[in-house]
Amino acid sequence: MIDQNAPLASLELWEDDVISRYPEPDHKAKEDYRNYDTPERDTVREFYRLNHTYQTYDFVQEKKANFLAFDKKELPVWSAMEFLNTLVDDSDPDTDLDQLQHLLQTAEAIRADGHPDWFVLTGFLHDMGKVLCLFGEPQWAVVGDTFPVGCKHSDKIVYPEFFAANPDSYDERYNTKYGVYKPNCGLKNVDMSWGHDEYLYHITKDYLPEPALYMIRYHSFYSQHREHAYNHLLDDHDHEMFKWVNKFNPYDLYSKSPKPPVVSELKPYYEDLIAKYLPATIRL
């Protein structure tokens, strides 16, 4: 029986599914990354069935009230990354690297291309919100493609048929094109489905440059930055900022390598970078 809290064998299986849906040119083929048999692939469908059923407008408000109180833990950022490492799962056949090493690979690829240091730091931090799993949150409330709640679900969202079980689909407040929003109101006024992107955005929103915050908050919003499904909610500023989201995503999805970074050599650089932008400790 599939565990409803954890239908995916690994959190990274969701990113693998994204690669298969949105392959980038000049990267190795999806089948060269992983080879999952049919039952395991079915766990992705089950993941999205749960996600699309339970990610309602009210659910998002409840999660914000709970987790944005930031009363669970207080840690230095590097310690939070080590905390995140307890999520390591042997089921990922792509890499033997732990979460910290994966984030360092992403950040180092950004750094090697000469991007600003805040961009490098964003690559290092971008998955830190997955600590939600360590607070007992189910996978479908931590990872997955994100989307607006409080308005009609786009058919460009992966597995849109599963929204038939979502009560918001039958609620007149939420099932119209604009729902609780106004035309081109701007994403600052839109509630997104709950997960690690939204959580980390709120942790870092007072400290990082705005392009970094867009990368963090919307890097899983594939129905928009790949399909442009919600242009009717975006304002001109959102469209400008999404250029940064598009720059970030290839580093997130395609930076895996079997060669592990040397953490001890990189740690001083990243600790200095963290200190430049973030407080000594963060509250989770």
Rank of each mutant, 00 (worst) to 15 (best):
47 F>I: 08
50 L>Y: 14
50 L>P: 05
50 L>M: 13
51 N>K: 15
51 N>E: 10
52 H>N: 15
57 Y>K: 09
59 F>C: 12
61 Q>P: 03
61 Q>Y: 03
62 E>D: 12
62 E>S: 13
65 A>T: 12
65 A>G: 06
66 N>E: 08
66 N>R: 10
66 N>T: 12
67 F>D: 01
67 F>T: 01
68 L>C: 10
68 L>K: 08
70 F>D: 02
70 F>G: 01
72 K>M: 13
75 L>N: 04
76 P>K: 02
77 V>N: 00
80 A>D: 01
81 M>N: 02
84 L>H: 05
84 L>Q: 08
87 L>K: 00
89 D>S: 15
89 D>C: 15
89 D>R: 09
90 D>F: 05
91 S>D: 09
91 S>Q: 09
92 D>F: 15
92 D>A: 11
93 P>N: 01
94 D>C: 13
94 D>H: 14
95 T>L: 00
95 T>R: 03
96 D>Q: 06
97 L>E: 01
98 D>K: 12
99 Q>T: 01
100 L>G: 01
101 Q>D: 09
102 H>D: 01
102 H>S: 00
102 H>E: 03
103 L>T: 03
106 T>D: 03
106 T>W: 02
107 A>G: 12
111 R>M: 08
113 D>G: 04
114 G>L: 03
115 H>R: 15
115 H>T: 07
121 L>S: 00
123 G>F: 09
124 F>P: 08
127 D>S: 10
127 D>E: 10
127 D>P: 04
128 M>A: 04
128 M>N: 00
128 M>V: 11
129 G>Y: 07
129 G>I: 06
132 L>V: 12
132 L>D: 09
132 L>S: 11
